[in-house]
Design a protein around this nucleic acid. Structure first.
Lengths: 348, 348
DNA sequence: TTTAGCACTCTATCTTCTCGAGTGCTAAAC
DNA sequence: GTTTAGCACTCGAGAAGATAGAGTGCTAAA
């Protein structure tokens, strides 16, 4: 049975009210706050049906209704009104992101912090997925005998560095030569195609110094791990503690469950990745309550979207908030930040 | 009036019990749990006196006593028994820190995480104070035209890098020359003595390429900001959300106040710095309750100590927990981690 | 100085009670 | 068929009262 128009309006109104107050919504309160041209008894009938269909729930017999996960889902998919950011808000976001960031990490941190401030929820920004990007530079800098800083630069604008140990007696020149050889052999190659073997052949094809094989291999192995490590996603998350002021997390146990999960960057990043694949064609990936397979987030909703670098799908930004979230507002905020990122990351 | 021996024992026992249970301690409970050779009435008299002297407090008339800040202070300064880490614990800490870390940042992160795990409280690890360290290397790597990565290496083993923008048309060679000139001129110089002027004279004295003055200045300015930025302390903090399971933070408002303050790295770092100066000669800096001048930490205690790099006082590690903290245990844990850090940072 | 004894205090907890928002159902009205 | 008024019923939140018990301070004796 499909929802008739009035039922849609009722559901929408209930979600709106519940989001605003965090209190179960009753038929009378609904009449008071909205211009339904029918009586409360009629709404009661509609609400009973909506409940039977699974869109609403009752915390207990004689309370008002709250939206179920299915109810929120319907709301998000087809009921909510598109929200337009006020000029004021747009200006604020723009301002926070208008500084020039010379590294993508700085920009993402700023994006995450802006998003947390604007939404009041938990924000998330992840570095680009690097499997599709390629190596543009690799430099090895001798810091002191035996210690080399490997700097890896990727096409997506990501710069990572890692300190590695090498045998003490290798000279700056030898390292530089190896570094140049590897760089020449690998630059332009997608990260996914770089393996220990490709690193080794690249070096050996281009190398001009003679070094004992085993020694060379040792250095190459370190270079390889540095490159591979550049592949790691970094996750910037902010605004966690804001959740404590929400009534749904006034029980510290619930908050703790949430924070426990969120403290594992890898878990969250993996989940975002999975969701992004599932909803490949969608502009926003939205997961509500039980739909989220991360522990402790069943009272939350999770909205993410992707930003681009060089025309390719790159990384994700998103927001985690209570199920009772101002969906349309948050979506427009995320969208605005996304647009800003796209603009900044793709300008000449 | 000084504390006689029995009063000291009573205070000690009360602190121990309160730490263990988080419930006000009464005279009867005290008799039950400890082998005082006197009656509860005698203890009541002692407790009344201790209260009058300010070492104990009553939450309300007919409850037991809890230690006041002054009581904790006395306990920490002269009553508590030194705790020795069990072999098991020592082994665990050692294991977690035994990986080789090639950069100090990695080691500190691991130290912070170990400390949080072991104590169950909030842990803190700060990068070395760099004012007393000197520049050992400065490299400028051209990443793409107009973008240069400045790598700064300091004597304390700290490596920092920062991307800066320069005019597009400068070549790799020109940058390398400037970079070499600056490095030669500045290496060995304490950070505190490096100013825009010293950078400029260093470059000009050693420079072999001819570049228009204004252009050169622009590059030098960027180099200078990169060096100055290397001076920033990084703060690694972990285990925040563990505080939520403590009864003293079951009220989310209190937890929020705490988290709000802790989310400002700078505040915490500044406070640690101040305290370190105050207690210059002490092995541990301990601040209890109201002694802490950071907002929201009046229910906490704060214990820090310093680790060394190259024989000099360097950075801080520490723990923030409830006032009702297992002081001696925490101190021995911090101490163990500190020794591990010293060992790792000063080995050849 | 210590102790036994006792009256007193105050919180935490449990029960009971009431209030009121909200419900579902029925029968009449549209 | 849909909508509405009316009404009995439900159930949680919160107030009010009662009770228990851990703890106290004080007094007087050991």
């Amino acid at each position: 049975m499909a929802l008739d128009n009035r039922k849609k309006e009722v559901l929408q109104a209930i979600v709106d009210d519940y989001v605003a107050t965090c209190e179960p919504v009753g038929s009378k309160a609904l009449i008071d706050r909205h211009d339904f041209m029918v009586s409360s008894a009629t709404l009661r009938n509609d609400m009973a049906e909506l409940e039977q269909m699974g869109y609403l729930e009752k915390p207990h017999t004689s309370a008002g209704r709250i939206p179920s996960d299915k109810g929120y889902r319907e709301y998000v998919d087809s009921l909510m009104k598109v929200d337009h950011l006020s000029d004021e808000e747009g200006r604020e976001i723009k301002e926070k992101l208008s500084m020039s960031f010379d590294e993508i990490a700085g920009l993402l941190k700023a994006a995450s912090s802006t998003l947390a401030d604007q939404t009041g929820y938990i924000s998330l920004a992840m570095t680009p997925k690097l499997t599709s990007s390629y190596l543009t530079q690799l430099k090895m800098l001798m810091i002191e005998p035996g210690k080399v800083l490997v700097v890896v630069v990727l096409s997506a604008g990501v710069v990572k560095n890692r300190m590695v140990r090498i045998p003490d007696f290798l000279t700056q020149e030898q390292i530089a030569q190896i570094s140049n050889a590897v760089e020449q052999g690998l630059s332009g190659l997608p990260l996914s195609e770089i393996s220990l073997i490709t690193v080794a052949t690249a070096a050996k094809d281009n190398q001009k110094v003679e070094l004992p094989e085993s020694l060379l291999n040792q250095v190459l192995y370190e270079a390889y791990t540095a490159i591979k490590q550049a592949d790691n996603l970094d996750v910037y998350m902010q605004g966690k503690h804001r959740m404590l002021s929400l009534p749904e997390f006034s029980d510290t146990k619930k908050a703790q469950g949430l924070f426990d999960t969120l403290s594992h960057d890898g878990l969250v990043a993996g989940y975002v990745d999975e969701v992004t694949k599932q909803d490949e064609k969608k502009e926003y990936m939205i997961r509500i309550g039980q739909e989220i397979t991360l522990e402790g987030l069943d009272n939350c909703s999770f909205i993410t979207t992707t930003y681009n670098v060089g025309g390719k799908v790159a990384g994700n930004i998103g927001v985690i908030g209570p199920k009772r979230m101002e969906y349309s507002k948050v979506i427009s905020q995320i969208n605005f930040v996304r647009m800003m990122l796209d603009e900044k990351l793709n300008q000449p």
